[in-house]
Computed example of a mutant assay.
Amino acid sequence: MGSLFEELEAREAAARERVDDLEDQLAEVTRRLEEAREHLERLRIARETVSEVMAEMSAGASATSDSAPVEPVVTGDDHEPSAFAGAERRVVGVLSVPHWRPGMDTQALPRIYRDIVEVVRDAPGPVRAKQIVPRIGLPAEVGKIEGTRGKLKRLVARGWLDEEDPGLFTPARHEAETAANASMKQGSSP
């Protein structure tokens, strides 16, 4: 009987060692997974930040180019324009949000911004970013809410929305006034 107990103890020790080894491997894989998730999140945030900055630069460049001619960039003593003159003002492939002007429709906006404006318009009252995120098909995660909040702020700055209280967004008043004026004109037409 003694040898049976010794054999069971040896097998138990081997099983315990295997469990410990697997737990160590699991801890290592979990640590690596967390590092990979953090790296992915940093890349996503960097991409969104760069897109926002490029969009703002593009909008600023178009406003600048509408109002002032572009001066050639002179390099060295030869006074020839650089091949890159004005290149910093041309941004390709970036979504930009134009400033609202009378008669402008949401079709001028990139799709995600158009969706946000439509959700705000359809809401019965002021809405917060966290209420908009699920309505535009995004998961209600902190990163998505913050990204949407940035887009809402940009829409406010460009005249598409109003922010009556901090974090509460409504359709811009001028849009309501424009709609009211249009309905009044239709009502007064013969």
Score class of each variant (00 low, 15 high):
Lys185Tyr: 09
Ser188Glu: 14
Leu152Met: 14
Asp78Glu: 09
Ala59Asp: 03
Gly125Asn: 11
Arg47Met: 09
Leu109Gln: 02
Leu26Phe: 10
Asp122Cys: 12
Thr30Gly: 03
Asn181His: 12
Ile145Thr: 12
Trp160Arg: 05
Leu152Tyr: 05
Glu6Leu: 03
Leu152Ile: 08
Glu88Ala: 04
Trp160Leu: 08
Glu71Asn: 07
Val142Ile: 13
Val117Ile: 10
Ala176Trp: 07
Glu146Phe: 05
Ala15Cys: 12
Asp162Lys: 12
Ala63His: 07
Ser58Ala: 15
Lys151Phe: 05
Arg149Ile: 04
His174Arg: 15
Val119His: 08
Gly125Ile: 05
Pro81Lys: 03
Ser65Gly: 01
Ser58Ile: 00
Gln25Phe: 09
Gln131Ala: 15
Gly93Ala: 02
Ala55Ser: 13
Asp122Asn: 14
Ser188Asn: 13
Glu7Met: 07
Gly187Tyr: 10
Glu71Met: 12
His99Lys: 14
Gly60Leu: 13
Val119Glu: 09
Ala140Phe: 10
Asp24Pro: 04
Lys144Cys: 12
Val70Cys: 01
Leu26Cys: 11
Ser188His: 13
Arg16Leu: 15
Glu7Ser: 10
Ala123Trp: 02
Gly125Leu: 10
Thr148Met: 07
Val94Cys: 05
Ala46Val: 07
Pro171Arg: 07
Phe5Val: 11
Ala179Trp: 09
Glu80Gln: 04
Leu4Arg: 11
Ala83Gln: 02
Lys185Ser: 11
Ala87Gly: 02
Arg11Cys: 12
Arg128Phe: 07
Pro69Lys: 04
Ser58Tyr: 00
Arg32Thr: 11
Pro69Gly: 03
Pro69Thr: 03
Glu52Ala: 07
Glu23Ser: 15
Ala83Arg: 04
His39Cys: 09
Pro126Met: 11
His79Asp: 11
Ala179Ser: 13
Asp21Met: 13
Arg111His: 05
Glu12Lys: 15
Ala157Gln: 10
Glu23His: 14
Ser189Asn: 09
